[in-house]
Design a protein around this nucleic acid. Structure first.
Lengths: 236, 236
DNA sequence: TCAAAAGTGTTACAAGTACACCCATGA
DNA sequence: TCATGGGTGTACTTGTAACACTTTTGA
């Protein structure tokens, strides 16, 4: 076997929707290199540890929730990054992971971080290493995954309304969707949403019904974003 | 930096269409471990070499064509595999790459291989390491990429007929498509196919026109495979 | 002139878009 | 009772499926 060895790290693009905007979890580095700069959470893969185990462990440490195995949330491999000069310490390969989590309290930093916080995607600071690229790849993957899977529900708590789900799509895609057609589309897709007997009272209009995730994973036919069809209609 | 280091390899899922069937390029290992068994072509990443450079270099060595940079063919990263026990020599992370190449002459083995050959996908022997998994992931990725991109043309030579292109879809998906509707679909997608003035004579029927690839990369709306439509209409 | 493959036209149907309209609640 | 958001009905439009039909060649 060749002698050129790599350190292998995992970096997480953890996305959530807060206040109708897509946010990413960033940590402030508590050690060299890039001490004090913002970066994606991550860590080195331990001996005898599989990649997804490292990712799920670090995700739990940063968010407090065990989102890797739980019903809520979603974790998948994104891509690997190994440019020879991407880390000043030497040859480090980073495997990017993409995570969707429901909105949760402020994070508690772990794993070599001095602070951590949720950033809206249009307010992301300069990032250490090549993490800007990893983040962009993750966001692009997230946008297209919503088109042909039911993963948007991974951003929601265990029970949610159709409007909650629509706001996830609008936040991730940055465009607005027709509430009436959206309602019909998601409620008529078999096994996507399971209705509960409960309605949410206290809001302004007619109380919406609460749903749970169904067993469906794919959306056929897909939900199309604006950009696929015609000129984009910005949200705001 | 931690002391647990990995060797990093690249493994290629090289697909092509020969005789209307999807084939994968396999090598017979010329060294330990798994000496004499079939495996995906690959190799270790050299110092100062980026992942895609390793992949493109090894692809060129195995096929004789420089398909990574050329107009013909396609090369993309697939996923990384790093189970602790996947290689008996120690901790080895393998980055899978997926390549589409036009049909070409028999390959010449390189890089630690004693032989290499194209195998139809339904005649693939047992594979070394976890290469069966990598191959399955690559084939599944290929199938879905044909749905929403123009990459099917990467399997064709620089000039090809609509029927050539249709046979690519049929070989990869393992299903047959209506030649008349397929014709309309691909010729009416802007910038997918650029007509040349030439017709192919010598065949049995009306001579088909030759096309080149256009600049389009995405297919909107996507080309749907049978399985997508059948799955969505179960027992009513 | 016949068989075969390329390519066009047409009808039927499925799905998405746009929007009118009704429902159920809080203020 | 009005404003607000949830939810349904429906005409219009786009795209696919199925298939009849014409075109252009070799045998």
């Amino acid at each position: 076997m060749r002698g050129n060895l790599f350190a292998v790290a995992v970096n997480l693009v953890v996305l959530t929707v807060r206040s109708d905007r897509l946010h990413v979890l960033l940590i402030e580095r508590g050690e060299q290199p890039f001490l004090g700069e913002w970066a994606l959470p991550g860590g080195f893969v331990r001996p005898d540890e599989d990649l997804v185990h490292t990712a799920s462990r670090r995700l739990g440490e940063e968010t407090g929730a065990d989102t890797g195995d739980a019903v809520l949330g979603h974790l998948e491999q994104l891509a690997s990054y190994a440019a020879p000069d991407r880390d000043p310490r030497g040859r480090v390969l980073s495997v990017g992971y993409l995570a969707f989590v429901p909105d949760m309290p402020e994070p508690t930093p772990g794993g070599g971080a001095s602070a951590s916080a949720w950033f809206p995607l249009d307010r992301v600071p300069a990032l250490a290493f090549d993490h800007k690229q990893i983040l962009e790849d993750g966001v692009e993957r997230a946008k297209s995954k919503l088109e042909y899977t039911t993963l948007a529900a991974s951003f929601c708590p265990s029970e949610f309304t159709v409007t909650d789900l629509r706001r996830v799509y609008e936040a991730v895609w940055g465009s607005s969707l027709d509430p009436r057609n959206f309602q019909r589309k998601v409620t008529s897709t078999a096994d996507f949403l399971v209705p509960t007997p409960q309605l949410v009272t206290g809001g302004r209009g007619r109380p919406p019904r609460l749903f749970r995730r169904g067993p469906a994973t794919a959306l056929h036919p897909p939900m199309l974003r604006e950009s696929n069809r015609a000129a984009e209609r910005p949200l705001s």
